[in-house]
């Protein structure tokens, strides 16, 4: 029987290795019934985009705590667009100052989760906003 599942790629772009949040989220997403591909630390935008397309995910979740999100998040969104995959939703999490948010939304990020966001609130957001594509 047809059984559409939400597929999510979780990645840590850049050089920062603080993956506590990403690891906790990977388990959370599994427990929420999603299929999660976690690509670990130290990914370039090119690697993340390549993996997202091959895995046909519905959403890419990026985590960055180093401050390099201003370059890395838009780079992922832009490369997805260039490769005809603008339908893959990109969201980000980490230490993202208020003034960086609008430029990231403008670059195509659909949601940003900052310190203190609960696991449930993130799962709820996904269930509301991400539909497995047909």
């Amino acid at each position: 029987m047809a059984d559409r599942k939400i597929r999510i790629l979780l990645a840590k772009p850049g050089l920062d290795g603080h993956d506590r949040g990403a690891r906790v989220l990977a388990r959370t997403f599994r427990d929420a019934g999603f299929e999660v591909i976690y690509t670990g630390c130290h990914q370039t935008p090119e690697q993340i985009v390549g993996a997202a397309i091959q895995e046909d995910v519905d959403m890419v979740g990026l985590s960055c705590l180093s401050g390099a999100h201003r370059y890395l998040f838009p780079a992922v969104a832009q490369q997805l667009q260039e490769q005809g995959a603008a339908d893959i939703t990109v969201v980000g999490g980490g230490i993202i100052p208020e003034q960086d948010m609008q430029p990231l939304y403008d670059a195509g990020l659909k949601a940003l989760f900052t310190p203190g966001a609960t696991l449930d609130s993130i799962v709820d957001w996904i269930n509301e906003n991400i539909k497995p594509r047909v």
Partner: peptide, 15 residues
Amino acid sequence: GALLGDRIRMLRHAE
């Protein structure tokens, strides 16, 4: 749900 973790070992071929 599922954690699909094999790919992480093969990332050097991503590009």
